[in-house]
């Protein structure tokens, strides 16, 4: 392809604008490609990386290409390979299911910096770095608050399949509840799907029927469970992106992934010629994980204080979280 296209990144995203310009004109900038499994505006996993790259766009003079909605693993592999061939400086494979392919592709393109997540594995390759969210930290903090808030002592969790980032988050949340309220019972329901919104809504309703007055959940299909919480006025904790938009009256707080913290390091390294080898993580301590509260929700002062104490404790290392 001689004609290059750059992405017009606006609120509506995904719109295309074809601008032909010579490939030499971005000498000082960088070309970054993202391959991600769901929609760029999913208010969850994919949006977190797209937002982060956009934050850094001006600072690093980025030329950005996004292939989103790539749930087919082989299609993602083809996209990773194609971006590398087209000379992108950094290729971000944003999905833990893409790692196996990346491991095979990266050695063919020693000049390209690949990074992927969430994972803690660089396969010992010099041009692959990985990134991971310590989502159990935010999960723990929100669990602590949930434990302090609940009146019924029943808390509901809706998860997809017990794997990866979802499991890490849910396990952290359950630990947090246990730490703050030994009497509270956490019902965890892995519904067996990342995509079944209707089932996730019913899982939320099942929690509520069993007395849950605080809920959380993770993955794309949680919009269903949030809807159940909204119609029954049950408090909700979000993760991966700020979910306040999904329920202004019920979302207490969200754990937001600020990947720009690690991407900055990855981009700086790439500029300096260091293409990989590092495992990065976002944590509460390095500012990659941020608790964003919903100002419209009148959160009990004690619960908020408990949450803030937990954040401080995790940052200071006083609270140790199991792996």
């Amino acid at each position: 392809m001689n004609t290059k296209y750059i992405k017009q990144l606006g609120i509506s995203a995904v719109m295309a604008m074809s601008v032909g310009f010579a490939s030499s004109s971005h000498a000082e900038g960088m070309k970054v490609a993202i391959i991600a499994p769901s929609a760029s505006n999913d208010l969850a996993f994919t949006q977190s990386i797209v937002d982060a790259v956009n934050v850094l766009k001006d600072e690093y003079k980025l030329e950005i290409a996004i292939t989103d909605g790539t749930f087919v693993v082989d299609d993602a592999a083809a996209a990773i390979r194609a971006y590398a061939k087209q000379g992108y400086d950094v290729v971000i494979a944003h999905g833990s299911q893409y790692g196996g392919s990346l491991k095979e592709i990266a050695p063919d393109f020693p000049e390209t910096a690949f990074t992927w997540g969430t994972s803690a594995d660089t396969f010992g390759l010099p041009n692959v770095s990985s990134y991971e969210a310590k989502s159990n930290e935010g999960g723990y903090v929100m669990g602590v608050m949930a434990g302090a808030m609940t009146k019924s002592n029943v808390i509901g969790v809706v998860g997809p399949i017990e794997v990866g980032d979802a499991k890490l988050y849910v396990d952290g949340f359950v630990d947090g509840v246990e730490a703050s309220n030994a009497d509270a019972k956490v019902n965890v329901n892995y519904i067996g799907s990342f995509g079944d919104v209707a089932l996730s809504a019913e899982a939320g309703k099942a929690h509520i029927a069993n007395g849950a007055d605080v809920m959380t959940g993770t993955a794309q299909m949680v919009v269903g469970a949030v809807g159940a919480a909204r119609s029954e006025n049950v408090a909700w904790f979000g993760t991966q992106a700020n979910q306040t938009k999904l329920g202004k009256k019920i979302v207490v707080a969200s754990q937001v992934y600020k990947w720009e913290v690690v991407l900055r390091t990855i981009f700086d390294d790439a500029k300096a010629g260091k293409l990989g080898g590092e495992m990065h993580e976002i944590t509460l301590a390095n500012g990659g994980l941020v608790m964003e509260f919903n100002d419209d929700y009148s959160l009990d002062a004690d619960a908020k204080a408990a949450g803030e104490a937990a954040v401080a404790g995790i940052i200071a290392g006083d609270i140790k979280l199991g792996e």
Binding site: G99, G100, S119, A120, V163, G164, L168
Partner: peptide
């Protein structure tokens, strides 16, 4: 071992 539990 790594605790990442990617289903693969």
């Amino acid at each position: 071992e790594r605790g990442t539990r990617i289903p693969q």
